[in-house]
Computed example of a mutant assay.
Amino acid sequence: MTTQTPAPATARTAVRPNLVRDSRNVLVRELRPVLRDPFTLIFSLVQPLVFLGLFAPLLIGQSGQPAGETLQWFVPGVLVMIVLFGTGATGSNLQYEMMTGSHERTLVAPLSRSALLVGRALKEVAPIVVQAIIIVLIAWPFGFAINVPGLVAGLVMLAVFGVGLGSLSYALALKTKDREWLFWGVQQTLIFPLLILSGMLLPLSEGPDWMRAVATVNPVNWVVQAERALLAGQFAGPEVLWGAVAAVAVAAVGLTVGIRGMRRSS
């Protein structure tokens, strides 16, 4: 009499969440639509190009200075504008995924909840760098002087700042969920005061005292000033230090709030 030994069951290896690996996977997933349809990246340049083409000539005419000097002041503000408007609206993509049920499917995947936020936030770096370089190259023939080390340092600061703003935008989307009107209402209410009180488009030196006082606590203002210093090749000024502090602080707060919101997401 022979005894049949049952075949051993195949052991299933559980995939454990890993922040670095999962963030990379989410980053690749988020970048694929951008690579497949780069027109969205180009279309998002319309607004900064309008400001560069229509607002800059007004500043040049009013200042009475050479076009190159005025562009040296104005272009860094346009680069920060790209980050402010671009990353500030990215939460709408996550909100769309929540409304269609796509986000709920990713929540049950064997991925770190933190990576779902970090990977999305890192994805914002690529459009920021590409768009900033395009704007600088467009301004170059009109007298804008390119300082390569300063430009590289400025792009790094913009990337850090953009990660923070993008994370805050995702956190807002998680909070408002399917109330799209609320997301855009809060986003628009915050973004325009931050823009105006940063001296991005017009200098605040001639503004009222209260406006200058509020600008001193506006992190966008410090990033704008730091970008102007860096793109001019000035690395040792206090503006660069305060701009770096502001960018890192926004990134830290954004990632903390965003990760907490993603972990609580259901």
Rank of each mutant, 00 (worst) to 15 (best):
V156D: 02
E180W: 07
L172W: 04
R105L: 13
L122I: 07
L151G: 02
L107N: 06
Y170Q: 10
L182C: 06
A109M: 14
V83I: 09
V160N: 00
R120L: 06
L151D: 02
E104K: 13
P149F: 09
D178Q: 12
W184E: 10
A139Y: 04
L174F: 13
F85S: 09
M157G: 06
L190M: 09
L137Q: 11
Q131D: 05
V156Q: 05
R120E: 00
V136F: 03
R113W: 09
M157L: 14
L122R: 09
S114L: 08
E104M: 13
A115N: 12
V163F: 02
I138P: 00
L174I: 11
A153P: 04
V80R: 05
V83M: 12
L172E: 04
I82T: 14
G77Y: 09
R113M: 03
I135R: 02
G91N: 02
T87Y: 00
N147S: 13
S92Q: 09
K123S: 14
I133Q: 08
L117N: 10
A115F: 03
W184K: 08
G91Q: 01
S92Y: 07
G119T: 03
N147C: 12
R120C: 08
V163D: 01
V129L: 13
V125W: 04
R113K: 15
Y170M: 15
G150H: 00
A89C: 03
G166W: 03
K123T: 15
A171S: 13
G185M: 11
A139V: 07
F85N: 02
G185W: 12
G101N: 08
I146K: 10
L190C: 10
T106S: 14
F85C: 04
A159Y: 06
Q95N: 08
F183N: 06
V83F: 04
I191L: 14
M81N: 05
Q188L: 14
V160H: 03
H103V: 12
P141C: 11
L137S: 08
V160Y: 00
A173R: 00
F183P: 03
V136R: 04
V78L: 15
E104V: 13
G119F: 07
L94A: 00
V125F: 00
Q188N: 15
Q131G: 11
L94H: 00
G86E: 02
M157A: 05
V80Y: 05
A126I: 15
M98Q: 14
A139F: 02
L111A: 05
I146R: 12
L172M: 03
L117I: 10
L117S: 10
M98D: 11
V108F: 13
P76C: 05
E180M: 14
M81R: 09
F142P: 04
L165A: 07
L190K: 05
F161P: 05
F183Y: 15
V163K: 03
W140M: 09
F161K: 07
A132C: 11
N147T: 14
V186P: 01
I82N: 13
A115Q: 02
T87I: 03
L116D: 02
L107D: 10
G101Y: 11
V108S: 14
I138S: 02
L122G: 05
T106W: 15
V129C: 07
T189F: 15
L122A: 10
T176M: 12
D178E: 14
G162E: 04
A89M: 15
A89E: 11
